[in-house]
Nucleic acid binder design. Sequence first.
DNA 1: GGTCTACTAGACTCATGAGTCTGTTTTAGC
DNA 2: GCTAAAACAGACTCATGAGTCTAGTAGACC
Lengths: 214, 214
Amino acid sequence: MVEVGGTRGRIEKRSAILEAAADVFAAEGFALASVDDIAAAAGVAKATVYSHFGDKEGLLRAVLTVEADRAAESNLAAIERLLHVEGDVDDALRDVGRRLVDCFCDPKAQALRRLVTGELARYPDLADLLFGRTPQRVHQALADRLLALSVQGRLVVDDPLTAAEHFGSLLTGSIDARSRLGSRRLPDAELDAIVESGVRVFLRAYGATPAAGR
Amino acid sequence: MVEVGGTRGRIEKRSAILEAAADVFAAEGFALASVDDIAAAAGVAKATVYSHFGDKEGLLRAVLTVEADRAAESNLAAIERLLHVEGDVDDALRDVGRRLVDCFCDPKAQALRRLVTGELARYPDLADLLFGRTPQRVHQALADRLLALSVQGRLVVDDPLTAAEHFGSLLTGSIDARSRLGSRRLPDAELDAIVESGVRVFLRAYGATPAAGR
DNA sequence: GGTCTACTAGACTCATGAGTCTGTTTTAGC
DNA sequence: GCTAAAACAGACTCATGAGTCTAGTAGACC
């Protein structure tokens, strides 16, 4: 590993630790992951971890914050594609839907959700940390896009926030069960089918032409 | 507590332990829950716990099995109501939907899901134990009912399993986020609204009269 | 009354891992 | 080259909790 010392390297150590901690937490869960393991994985002394993050809980929070932001970015990037819809709305929705499903199935994102869920009993505020960062922003952004499409007459959406929830639910609702909470990788074709049927239902409910999608 | 000795009482001890373990696991999470606490809560000596369940993991599996079956029963009972639909289909769907949402929001059910999620890293097969018991049976039962309603001409369902997934997703998809994974109790009115809008979307997609629900 | 099984209280072993401390080494900035 | 901040390896303390063991008690059945 590259040796970096002094003040300059501090920030690099920090992100190396965050990276390693995310991996170890994801693989082992919070309780089972030892700080020694994380330090070793980051190529760093244990004391360095403590000097950066105070304690294990602080490290967890830092990891969750970083990963939640990262997840939010990729989700928002997917939704961005609804800003200028050129062809059919349903093509656009399928495209965006597939991207959102991919974000949802991303191993890191799934590990993140598992982490928070598992430690909720010990640290109840983690849910706010996570949900305040990712789903809320994503939800709002999607609602904005759907409303805009409705104004353009390409969808009929009276309550954008609810419609956004429905879109997301139809796409991701069955994935946790099918993938056994992420412990099984779902084949591409299956994800495509989920998106396909989910978008079809969404369009029957919110499409501008009542008979959309046959 | 009632003192029961001899062979007769053994089964009662067993269920007392399961009951207490479910509570303690739900409240503390698996890692944080100590067997001493569980034994104390059950009014039983620690050795008795070990004589019944071997080790802590065995206890966890037993608890999950019992609770998953219990959850499946209440879900199936709700779906049963679609066997003979007298009035409007949408009234029936709202009724069943609300019951399913209540099952989903039941604190024990939520704790169960949290438990499995949190320990998935350590015991990956727990997901199969849980999902093989509850959602799969519920999913199939719901699909059966939807198909029957379709045969009666009261719905238009080509793929019952997918339709059942959509129904479930529309009802429960937003609840984890809104309730912060169960750490906030959602008011009744909010749950009603979720059911109302979810059923409306479902009927627009699968209703026999295309313009159903306005 | 004797025996067997299940239970009890509580002491005990032992592994694990969080967090601290020590003394040394590296590197940036001057 | 000197200084000070930061990181290093690794030993150390300490709390916790799983699982075991012992010695004694209570009811069931004959």
